[in-house]
Design a protein around this nucleic acid. Sequence first.
DNA 1: CGATCATCTGACAGCGCTGTCAGGCTGCAG
DNA 2: CTGCAGCCTGACAGCGCTGTCAGATGATCG
Lengths: 382, 382
Amino acid sequence: MMVVQGEHADMLPPGGAPVTTVAGPAAATRVAPDAVARPHAGRGGRRPTLASVAEAAGVSLKTASRVLNDEPNVAPQTRAKVQEAAQRLGFRRNAVAADLARGGSSRLVGFVTGDLANPFYSALASGIERELRHHGLQLITTSSDEEPERERTLTEALVERRVGALVVTPTSTDHSSLRRELDDGLPVVFIDRPAQGVEADTVVIDNRGGVRDAVTHLLAHGHRRIALVGDVSRLWTFQERRDEFVATLRAAGVEDPARYVRDGAHDADLARAFVTELLALPEPPTALVTANNKITVGALHALRDRVSGGEAPDVALVGFDDFELADLLHVTVVGYDVVEMGRQAAALAVSRAENPELAPRLVVVPTRLVVRGTGEVPGPGA
Amino acid sequence: MMVVQGEHADMLPPGGAPVTTVAGPAAATRVAPDAVARPHAGRGGRRPTLASVAEAAGVSLKTASRVLNDEPNVAPQTRAKVQEAAQRLGFRRNAVAADLARGGSSRLVGFVTGDLANPFYSALASGIERELRHHGLQLITTSSDEEPERERTLTEALVERRVGALVVTPTSTDHSSLRRELDDGLPVVFIDRPAQGVEADTVVIDNRGGVRDAVTHLLAHGHRRIALVGDVSRLWTFQERRDEFVATLRAAGVEDPARYVRDGAHDADLARAFVTELLALPEPPTALVTANNKITVGALHALRDRVSGGEAPDVALVGFDDFELADLLHVTVVGYDVVEMGRQAAALAVSRAENPELAPRLVVVPTRLVVRGTGEVPGPGA
DNA sequence: CGATCATCTGACAGCGCTGTCAGGCTGCAG
DNA sequence: CTGCAGCCTGACAGCGCTGTCAGATGATCG
């Protein structure tokens, strides 16, 4: 889909610069230069080192180091000389070497997310980053694609990179491989789902409370045949939500409470299909609870397929996870503060880095029901 | 606000800040109850080094290194011994030290994004990451919050970390500080907006073509009074979009084509206000072009404010940037493949790392008009 | 006046790893 | 038996930086 630019040649950046327009049919076209790939042909002179700065300034390596680290006990004059030299040579300190020499971990925090493209995770990342920033830490984000194997690979790579802390959205069911890191004092925080097999700081949503609110709400509006459309049942969050869903219905005296429970809706398209299927049942549910944002979107599509006009839908819907535009679409959801979740996770990591002896902590983020319309469609019992 | 969590988080406050809950006799599903039993194993023995592995295996440091890097010329027996020792000691190689010793940059690629929380950027990040993964590279993502000063700080930090390449969404207007890095052979790719003051690989959208399509579409539907709601005019993308907007209108014989151009709508709320204002004019526009996803959302809110019922809106709208749910909302947009954009950027970076002598390249991502409804509201001239 | 102290500076030994190179060993041809 | 590859292995010197410690200087004090 990348097209050679021709027609719109007028869009070139101002001030003449560019240049060759690479293009070619979408994904496949990797720029394949004819030239033989040569190893880092570092072009110009070598990058200035601290040693070269020291030499240029006529001081020792250590003194230069002191200046560039803002350490005390350096004569103002010396300081100036070094700074001038560093400036002139365009010196950039090598944080990698510095970290090594300090014999420790870097000021990097690793985040293993499920899927960066999901707004939920990017909101998390955003919250984490914002908190870390205050502590002079940087975030390195990676995607496991919800694959346990990838998760393991990624955490390992991050550990090898000697990150100062790790925030993980656990996908796999076993995290004993991380036990060694925990024992070594690496702060590890699990977010959204608790880890299994290890004890560590954890931030989770109040899944059960949220689902209970949703179901109770629907019951109050006269629904009895309520469906739950969920993600793969391997995921802890869904297990929690499902269990509470069933428990709440049962407590309300609904018989066969698991009757309309479906799992495996891993993406919006599957969810859409599931919902369509559910609604085609001889005795279809009159209300839906969707277990996460992607599923809610899928369900909305299914509902629209059904009600092609502009009329109000005849099926109630409460979604877990708030999302942008949910208000415009009048979708009732179980919401919570995702950015804050991330921030909490980062705070846990930081505090543990400062004090490794703390007992594992659990932060539960409360949910609240956001009433917007779809959740208030009356049921037969209303 | 420390609350001990009970059976279910029943006592959670209805709203407001998350509750920090320390795991006591926690929910049975979660933390294993042997918390107290284990004395703080943290910060116990030092992390095993390659040297300790070598010693345990009874070989030299170098041989151990060879084994763990899968280098040839090691006797199978020796190899096995080392692997066993590494396994037993729980050795994790120190990638930082390895990078240093190799005398070069790390296998990390830095990405300076405008705002991680914006789905546009996270889609970019996702595309970049996906491509890098194929090359054994990892992505480190940071947010500039669209602040030039932060952008500079971040790029500098990344350079100091010796990233192997840099992908930047330029916010600032001057990137001469990066010239040194470019000269040093560091692959730098600018994405979404070209850099000013330096020549480098760049990936941009066909902004002018997209806007032209949008405006032409609206003109064809009988609109003459068309508004453009844009972001801060410091940003190159908006400048492009605005210029083309005006040019297209002028070419169509519309007089005072800039009459309804507004800029400064930095977030959805501002955009909403701008649109409301525009529509309150004595002679309001009959169609809107919104310059990015956030603004489109704001405009949609404004339109809904106006048409409180379910009736079809009376103002046409074409948004730049596609977004999830745009289909459900019937929003006509100028779309393009964001993930692919990221992928292209990563590919440029990788290819330049392999061959620094390449001339700067420009990749232009094509746009396409996605017709869904709001863009087809007929105008007075229809 | 020498002793004491605070301030400033530099030599040096690593951090944990890899590249280089020299050396030991085996097998096989001459 | 010598010579010469070919295969393994290990010493050693860094990568660029920081921590430690000792030395140098001048100021202060008994």
